[in-house]
Design a binder for these strands. Structure first.
Length: 259
DNA sequence: ATGGTTGAAACTCAA
């Protein structure tokens, strides 16, 4: 089965691209971030016509995440625990029945964290700590788990065309990389890294300054697999061609094929 | 050099 993640950057502005991609890529599960929509305005009918069940955790204007699945989505959870007063819609998870038992899929939109001197940076680090706690608890259940989404973290220098340009940025600060490594150290496999160790694999190109034309990209969208999910990893990749479409998102879909 | 672009919603902010 194929599980994909895509920061869509506005689901209503991107609906035509989304439907086209769902038809050609046909993921069994798709995690969407930055839908920038309230639940009631999410285009569930159009997506449902392609055979998908939908679970949405949206908000007005910004953020917002959604799970799409050809199979039912059970036991949906919205938001991370310990979110005292946290109004930002950045997390949704669900239990998906498969031919080999249930699999939990988490769809995450980590905070960007810039500017580093503002309250946004500690919010990012705290959010990542909350995800780490949630993941540690889920791993004890030994159900296959995929923690997918826009991590807003450049894990290593080879994950940027020009890593030197990111020094001091919240996506590349030592504290952010450390939080990502702590999550990995729970026993998660970075699926794309495990099949493309050589770098030059990016998932985001800024709209500005001709970043796409210069291939000035970064790899910040990740699928992290629990041991039970990693055992089933067949293939992983990115749908780079979507960045060249009309009205593209600045991110491209990233996917894994699990047996 | 503080540019450059996009979406949502409101005439600015977040990315």
């Amino acid at each position: 089965m194929r599980i994909a993640t895509w920061n869509i950057n506005g689901v209503k502005a991107r609906l035509e691209n989304l439907l086209h991609w769902l038809k050609e890529s046909a993921p069994d599960v798709a995690c969407l971030q930055e839908i920038k929509s309230v639940d009631e305005a999410f285009p569930a009918l159009e997506i449902g016509d392609l055979g998908y069940n939908v679970a949405v955790h949206g908000q007005k204007g910004f953020n917002g995440v959604a799970l799409l699945s050809k199979r039912p989505i059970d036991d949906v959870t919205r938001g991370l625990p310990d979110g005292d007063g946290d109004e930002q819609a950045r997390f949704i998870s669900g239990l998906i029945p498969t031919d080999h038992g249930a699999m939990r899929v988490a769809c995450c939109y980590m905070p960007n964290g810039n500017p580093v001197g503002s309250e946004k940076f500690p919010y990012k680090l705290d959010w990542m700590r909350r995800l780490e706690d949630w993941t540690a608890a889920r791993l004890e259940e030994e159900t296959p788990l995929v923690v997918a989404g826009d991590y807003n973290v450049i894990p290593e220098p080879i994950d940027a065309k020009h890593p030197e340009n990111w020094t001091g940025d919240a996506l590349y600060r030592p504290e952010s990389l450390s939080a990502f490594r702590r999550l990995s150290a729970l026993g998660l496999t970075d699926a794309v890294r495990s099949v493309a160790e050589g770098g030059n694999v990016y998932t985001f190109w800024d709209y500005q300054a001709g970043a796409w034309q210069k291939n000035n990209g970064i790899r910040i969208d990740h699928l992290m697999l629990s041991p039970e999910a990693a055992d089933r990893l067949v293939e992983a990749g990115i749908d780079r061609h979507t960045r060249a479409w009309e009205k593209p998102s600045d991110h491209v879909p990233v996917w894994v094929e699990l047996s």
